[in-house]
Measured scan of single mutants.
Amino acid sequence: MSIQHFRVALIPFFAAFCLPVFAHPETLVKVKDAEDQLGARVGYIELDLNSGKILESFRPEERFPMMSTFKVLLCGAVLSRVDAGQEQLGRRIHYSQNDLVEYSPVTEKHLTDGMTVRELCSAAITMSDNTAANLLLTTIGGPKELTAFLHNMGDHVTRLDRWEPELNEAIPNDERDTTMPAAMATTLRKLLTGELLTLASRQQLIDWMEADKVAGPLLRSALPAGWFIADKSGAGERGSRGIIAALGPDGKPSRIVVIYTTGSQATMDERNRQIAEIGASLIKHW
């Protein structure tokens, strides 16, 4: 067993022997301040990774656009098919120029040779490549099948209805392509620590998230040296922004954090800054 596999296998073990965790309302004060600064709703939840206990939450059962955070769930569904012998990570998928959609920095470079399922998941999570996500959605049967996968996990809230990039439209009061912070946090925890996926697939999923290259201005910008984070960000229309993450000190994750916002007129930089400040408060009061 590799060191990384050992780390993920012992996530519940280490967490069980940690000192009790206590909620700190100071972080919620910052979440509410972010709402004021952005002029928009902000949803927040913080779960203990081992027990699933909610440590703090704000608007945990209000719907927010998922945006690209759905790509972690998508690759979880792909990995479940791999575990069941219905898919192979090494299978190569070929596609054409007509398949390319807006923001496809990886797939646009491989029109000639195609990409493997493993490479597509890596591109979808680490670079948020939209064509990679659409190609992977095709392998599982489309958005409705991802929703069905989530329902089978016990998540009857999260739903995907459309493809990239239309799913980022974020129309107010439109339930399409949305989740709730509580539902997303619980589902992410199941994917990373539950028995739904094999140990190898859980490790692969967290490795992809740990290698995320496009979430630097968010929670990662607030992390002290030595902290662990595996995350996936999302951005959408109407001032929408979000991030889902597993993080913790001492090089291992111990909490799940989900943050979503929508309806702001603020710039992307300002949305990023507010999420980073929430992260800084979380870490300060850990």
Rank of each mutant, 00 (worst) to 15 (best):
L188F: 11
K252I: 14
L74A: 07
G43T: 00
P65D: 01
E108W: 09
Y103I: 04
G242H: 01
Q86Y: 15
D174F: 02
K190G: 15
G263S: 08
Q97G: 14
N130F: 01
A182H: 15
Q274Y: 10
E35S: 04
A132Y: 01
L196F: 13
E46V: 09
T116Y: 03
N134M: 03
P217W: 06
L47A: 09
Q88K: 15
W208A: 04
D174A: 04
N130D: 05
G234R: 00
L100C: 06
G216W: 08
L191C: 07
T262G: 06
V31F: 00
A133V: 04
S240H: 06
A124Q: 02
M67P: 02
K144E: 12
R220F: 02
H94S: 11
V82D: 05
R238T: 10
N134P: 00
L28A: 10
N272V: 04
V117F: 05
S96N: 13
W227G: 01
A222R: 12
D36Q: 15
Q203D: 10
V29L: 14
W208G: 02
G263E: 09
G85Q: 12
E35T: 03
F228E: 01
H94G: 09
S96M: 15
E35P: 00
L100R: 05
I125W: 00
L282E: 01
T27G: 04
K284R: 13
Q88N: 14
Q37R: 15
V257S: 04
A225R: 12
V157P: 03
A77I: 09
A235L: 06
L74E: 02
M153A: 11
F70T: 06
G114M: 01
I256N: 02
Y103T: 06
I259M: 09
I206T: 11
T116C: 07
A222G: 10
G142C: 04
L74T: 06
V257D: 02
L160Y: 02
R238G: 11
H94E: 11
A34Y: 07
L79M: 12
I125K: 00
R241A: 04
R159N: 08
L197Y: 06
V72I: 09
T187P: 01
V72Y: 03
L28T: 09
S264P: 04
V82I: 12
Q274L: 14
Q274R: 11
L197F: 07
S68G: 03
R255H: 06
T267V: 11
E277G: 10
G239W: 03
S240K: 05
I278K: 03
